[in-house]
């Protein structure tokens, strides 16, 4: 049993059509192709060549079938593309850092090795990326085919406002107040004490940090203040400011993480008094230490990124 090219072509073209239209389209295509071949034969072509030419002219049967059932030949068309792209970017920015952070935190609490934490976090980040891209695109591909409305219409309120980038007076004041309160709290903690036991201050911070380590911290704070004033005076972030800001954030992070790692940051007597004597186990303290470490690292990392983002924005102005 031999099938002609035409039969194979038509079978391929009607395959994806709704069953009720298949026979009709098949019969119509048979007639149309036969007509076209006949016309070629009248011009003296051989049958085989004529058939080939006609079918080639008709093109990919898949595309023809798509024309019959009005199916889009793109995954996500212009109607949804921008909504898709904006949503995907937004989700990637939110979800991946959260997933990576959560995995790293979980592993750190369960005392995984440093290499394992890095490796697993990256793997989780990549997995989250792939999943997000796939599922978001799938939803939009389905929308494209069902013609549903995403309800996301652009309006003028979405235009981004020109963002003030920490060059304003408010940011300088915020920095000063924040650092002032921190320094005040540290001094109060050491000299007067938030908790007093038998008339003596029981400080939260390890007293052995005074004076050397605390001096380092206060120097970092002092440079922070100078930087904030400099940015306020200059009115814009420059590369130099961003570099200094990065150096400060790294210094602060290494100060905190080094002391935390050596278990020298917090006063052991304070921990004993507040936690251990109240039945809170070592395990909980360790978890708290890990959380604190992540907090310090995260805060510093954000400060670095924030500085460079502001520099970039100001460079564009």
């Amino acid at each position: 049993m031999t099938t002609t090219l035409t039969e194979r072509y038509i079978a391929q073209a009607v395959k994806g059509l709704p069953p009720e239209t298949q026979n009709d389209v098949r019969a119509e295509l048979e007639a149309s192709i036969a007509d076209a071949i006949e016309a070629q034969l009248e011009q003296g072509e051989e049958h085989g060549d004529a058939e080939r030419a006609v079918l080639t002219e008709l093109g990919d049967p898949g595309a023809l079938a798509a024309g019959y059932i009005d199916r889009p030949l793109q995954l996500v068309g212009p109607k949804y593309y921008l909504t898709w792209w904006r949503l995907l970017k937004l989700l990637l920015w939110i979800v991946i850092p959260c997933v990576v952070g959560a995995v790293a935190l979980g592993l750190a609490i369960s005392e995984a090795s440093f290499g394992e934490i890095i490796g697993q976090s990256i793997a989780a980040g990549i997995a989250a990326f792939v999943h997000l891209c796939f599922w978001v695109t799938l939803v939009f591909a389905i929308l494209e085919r069902t013609g549903a409305d995403t309800g996301a219409e652009w309006d003028v309120d979405q235009l981004p406002e020109p963002q003030s980038t920490g060059t304003g007076r408010a940011d300088l004041i915020a920095t000063l107040i924040f650092l002032g309160i921190t320094v005040g709290a540290l001094l109060w903690d050491y000299f007067i004490g938030f908790i007093r036991v038998d008339g003596e201050a029981l400080s939260l911070m390890n007293p052995s940090l005074w004076p050397a380590w605390m001096t380092v911290l206060f120097v970092i704070f002092a440079i922070d203040i100078v930087l904030a004033i400099a940015i306020f005076v200059k009115g814009r972030w420059t590369t130099a400011f961003a570099v200094v800001n990065t150096a400060l954030a790294v210094s602060f992070a290494s100060w905190g993480l080094t002391l935390l790692g050596r278990e020298q940051l917090v006063n052991p007597e304070w921990l004993d008094f507040v936690f251990l004597q109240n039945g809170v186990g070592e395990e909980v303290l360790r978890i708290l230490a890990v959380l604190l470490g992540f907090g310090i690292a995260g805060f510093s990392l954000w400060s670095i990124i924030d500085g460079w983002l502001k520099r970039r924005k100001d460079a564009l102005r």
């Binding site: 119509e28 295509l29 149309s32 023809l64 024309g67």
Partner: peptide, 22 residues
């Protein structure tokens, strides 16, 4: 189908068969 394709061509509306039939 095919007759219309030819008529279109003659009158200056050259169209591909795979556009016209659908």
């Amino acid at each position: 189908g095919y007759g219309l394709l030819e008529a279109l061509e003659q009158r200056g509306f050259a169209t591909d068969a795979n556009t016209l039939y659908p």
